[in-house]
């Protein structure tokens, strides 16, 4: 769904613990600086990645995060894929609603992360795991 050409090999981080979520933030921060996102956009994409990596850990039972620098011919950007083989999401509309949570959190992870990025794609089904792709373009 995402447009743009990969600029380099994706960097992958497995997510199996709290510490891995911290590593995902650091990986995304480094990539966001490399494609010259503004400070505010760096902050937004790292925050979104933090929310989604935590979801991968807590709801997906762990998984992987893949970070790629991309270019659509006009501007560079960063694409991040969060994949898990957990239970999947049965009611996606509900899961994307502000304040809805099954895990005792604030219910802002998915919906908030979607607001912080330029493109947001989610593929999930019960028993099929969840795969979320986000893109943030440099302005």
């Amino acid at each position: 769904m995402t447009s743009g050409v990969d600029l380099g090999r994706p960097q992958t981080q497995s997510v199996g613990s709290d510490e891995d979520v911290v590593r995902v933030r650091q990986l995304v921060r480094t990539a966001a600086v490399a494609v010259r996102l503004s400070l505010v956009d760096q902050t937004k994409v790292v925050t979104a990645a933090s929310e989604l990596a935590r979801n991968t850990l807590v709801y997906g039972g762990g998984g992987t995060v893949e970070v790629t620098a991309i270019d659509n011919g006009r501007r560079p950007g960063i694409r991040i894929v969060f994949a898990d083989s957990g239970p999947g999401i049965a009611d996606l509309d509900l899961a994307l609603t502000d304040g809805y949570t099954t895990g005792g959190g604030l219910g802002l992870g998915l919906s908030g992360a979607r607001r912080l990025v330029d493109e947001f794609d989610i593929q999930t089904a019960p028993g099929q795991g969840t795969r979320i792709t986000i893109t943030k373009w440099s302005r």
Partner: peptide
């Protein structure tokens, strides 16, 4: 709180 953090928090919905 850094300005970029404040902007992001509000957009996140917090």
């Amino acid at each position: 709180m850094r300005p970029a953090v404040a902007i992001t928090l509000v957009e996140l919905g917090l």
